[in-house]
């Protein structure tokens, strides 16, 4: 960890200003991801702007019947909010499937969306890694890649987005509210929030320097039954090998998104339209361009079987 300076932001505008004007500055919220990266010097900010004092800690109904979640709402508070539990069960379930109670108490909505990947080579600074050191190569491509992505990858990076909450937010078509250096707030659909690696694997998100996430907006509830199934090697406290988020309707239609299979939550609308035809139709379409490694090829079959499980649950 390199020495850094630290300030607590007093207003959103000030926070944005502080990060924009200080080279190497970064926001910090719960710190549960950023601090780990700093200890290993994978990330080495020179200045931290703590946003936890900002007024983004509430969850409010929106006029259209949806919900607005402040960027600083903790994972614990979000998952246990009565309206989230009632109307957006998939979100609640996805969050509690992640990390541990202690981490969820610290982790924030904004920070969770921005959590970085869990590729083992990314975490070992002796190894080549394009995401960590652009141009150094990708050690995972021909290395240990069981947990990594099978689709949406490039020859420059095959890391998966490991998060749980984002998969549910993608399913729900959430919008991310962003305050930019210009002082204006704009919204970004979550489908455009995560980037695919392409030739620039070092950029995970479509967020510019100094852009502050202020909240997340959920459209009105979808009804249906809500499912989140996270497959993992141990029963708790592990990242997903594959996860499936789904909202299923009585008529057999619905939505599906897959986690831990791609650099972003993986939702293919043409594929979910095939839900009435059963799980294999959906996954065949959703993974038709998959480029798995020998280590992680099983994830495609696993995604299909997990979707079958979710559909089976939905029928009960």
């Amino acid at each position: 960890m390199k020495p850094f300076t630290y300030e607590r932001a007093k207003s959103p505008a000030e926070a944005v200003q502080a990060v924009t004007s200080t080279p190497g500055a970064r926001f910090i919220a719960g710190g549960t991801n950023l601090l780990d990266l700093m200890k290993l010097q994978i990330d080495a900010p020179t200045h931290l702007v703590d946003v936890r004092g900002l007024p983004f800690t509430t969850i409010e109904d929106t006029q259209d019947g949806g919900l607005r979640i402040g960027a600083l709402v903790t994972n614990t508070d979000l998952a246990s909010h009565p309206r989230v539990k009632r109307d957006y069960g998939v979100l609640s379930r996805a969050i509690v499937a992640g990390a541990t109670g202690q981490l969820r108490n610290k982790a924030t909505t904004g920070g969770n969306l921005l959590q970085r990947n869990r590729c083992p080579y990314f975490y070992n600074t002796d190894m080549p890694c394009n995401k960590r050191r652009p141009g150094s190569g990708c050690a995972a491509l021909e290395g240990v890649s069981r947990s990594l992505a099978v689709i949406g990858t490039s020859d420059n990076c095959i890391a998966q987005n490991p998060g749980d909450m984002a998969v549910a937010l993608r399913l729900l078509d959430a919008d991310i509210e962003v305050l930019g250096p210009s002082g204006r707030t704009h919204t970004l659909p979550i489908s455009e929030f995560h980037r695919l690696p392409g030739d620039t694997p070092e950029r995970d998100f479509a967020l510019g320097n100094g852009e502050l996430i202020t909240g997340v907006k959920l459209p009105p509830p979808l009804g249906g039954t809500h499912h989140y199934h996270k497959v993992r090697d141990r029963a708790s406290y592990a990242f997903a090998i594959v996860s499936v988020a789904a909202v299923l309707q009585k008529d057999g239609s619905g939505r599906v998104a897959f986690g831990s299979v791609a650099p972003k939550p993986w939702r293919v609308q043409e594929a979910e339209a095939l839900l009435p035809q059963g799980p294999s139709a959906v996954t065949d379409r959703a993974f038709q361009d998959a480029r798995p490694t020998n280590d992680n090829r099983f994830k495609i079959a696993l995604a299909e079987r997990t979707l079958a499980l979710v559909i089976d649950e939905g029928r009960r």
Binding site: R118, P120, Y123, M127, A139, G143, V144, D233, R234, A235
Partner: peptide
């Protein structure tokens, strides 16, 4: 069911060298 150090023979190391990558049972198991 879960414990294994993963060798990367190109670099000659155990690549999952922390308790996030090397899973041991937790209470729920």
């Amino acid at each position: 069911l879960m414990e294994a150090l993963a060798v990367d023979p190109r670099y000659g190391l155990f690549i999952n060298h922390d308790l996030g990558g090397y899973e041991v049972p937790v209470h729920a198991d």
